[in-house]
Design a binder for these strands. Structure first.
Length: 272
DNA sequence: AGACGTACCTGACCGC
DNA sequence: TGCGGTCAGGTACGTC
């Protein structure tokens, strides 16, 4: 489930725990998640030192000292834990023992996530990354950029902002939240958005994601003090999962609809 | 090219 | 207690 803010928070949490440590042992427990586990994964990871943790879209990129990167996607249900006293759990697919005494585990019940080993220099051109759209928090992403992206799109706007080939990191929760903040109806045909609306929406996406990252940072402080899980944080949503609750602005009941098989929440009065 | 449906998988929850 | 249905925060692929 993790969306961009969660993945960003996880990366920030992993950095101090992993960077500089060497993987003393790696154990892969599952032949395949969404894609097959890399061949000889355990041997390839053993005795490698972790140099940096990065993020692109919702991918966690763990850079190793031999020009190879361990790439992890959490899918819908993935979690990462780093603990000193590791105890194996059901659905722990990859377990790394580290030279600092910590153990990192990737747990993913639904197995929609993935693990890949990609030469660091080839990540951008890798199949998993090559079709990814712009990072929403980059300065390049703004109203004009969004307007250009969607000017010929006849799908609804919610599908467009969730389309990772256009803009990455906006999942089902923050799509609803961003549209609410920018007062745009989720079923609006994308191409009909005015330049002003594109400006509002791009700002709303940034604001929503940044606020969630900040909230994740708070969770992270707690996390650092104890062994724990990363991947799910407390959120306070304005519309997501708020069916029937009064809109914060106008008190109209929040409505849930289905778009492309996914739940969308919006205020039928504020969003046009 | 773009839009749309479907598939991947487990687990929690709800009504009967 | 069990069973069937529905739902869940993501992404890739096939088809039209």
């Amino acid at each position: 489930m993790p969306e961009l803010p969660e993945v960003e928070t996880i990366c920030r949490g992993l950095e101090p725990k992993l960077a500089g440590s060497t993987i003393t042992a790696a154990k892969s427990n599952t032949p395949k998640l969404r894609i097959a586990m890399p061949t000889k994964l355990e041997q390839k990871l053993k005795n490698k030192t972790i140099t940096a943790i990065k993020r692109r879209a919702k991918y966690i990129i763990i850079e190793l000292d031999d020009e190879l990167s361990l790439v992890i996607h959490l899918g819908m249900s993935g979690r990462v834990t780093v603990t000193k006293n590791y105890q194996a759990k059901k659905h722990d697919h990859l377990v790394l023992k580290l030279s600092n005494g910590q153990t990192m585990a990737l747990n993913d019940p639904r197995r929609f996530g993935l693990v890949a080993l990609i030469p660091t220099a080839e990540i951008d051109s890798d199949k998993l990354f090559v079709n990814l759209g712009i990072e929403p928090l980059s300065t390049k992403f703004n109203g004009a950029y969004l307007a250009n992206l969607i000017q010929k799109r006849h799908r609804d706007i919610k599908s467009c902002i969730m389309d990772a080939s256009l803009v990455v990191g906006v999942g089902n929760i923050y799509a609803s939240e961003s549209l609410y903040l920018s007062k745009i109806h989720p079923e609006r045909e994308a191409a009909t958005l005015s330049n002003k609306e594109c400006e509002e929406l791009s700002k709303a996406i940034k604001q929503t994601l940044k606020a969630a990252i900040k909230a994740g940072g708070s969770s992270l402080r707690d996390y650092r003090q104890a062994d724990g899980e990363m991947g799910y944080f407390q959120h306070s949503f304005k519309v997501y999962d708020q069916s029937g609750q009064p809109c914060h602005k106008c008190k109209t009941a929040i409505v849930r609809i289905k778009q492309a098989g996914r739940s969308t929440y919006y205020c039928p009065n504020c969003q046009i």
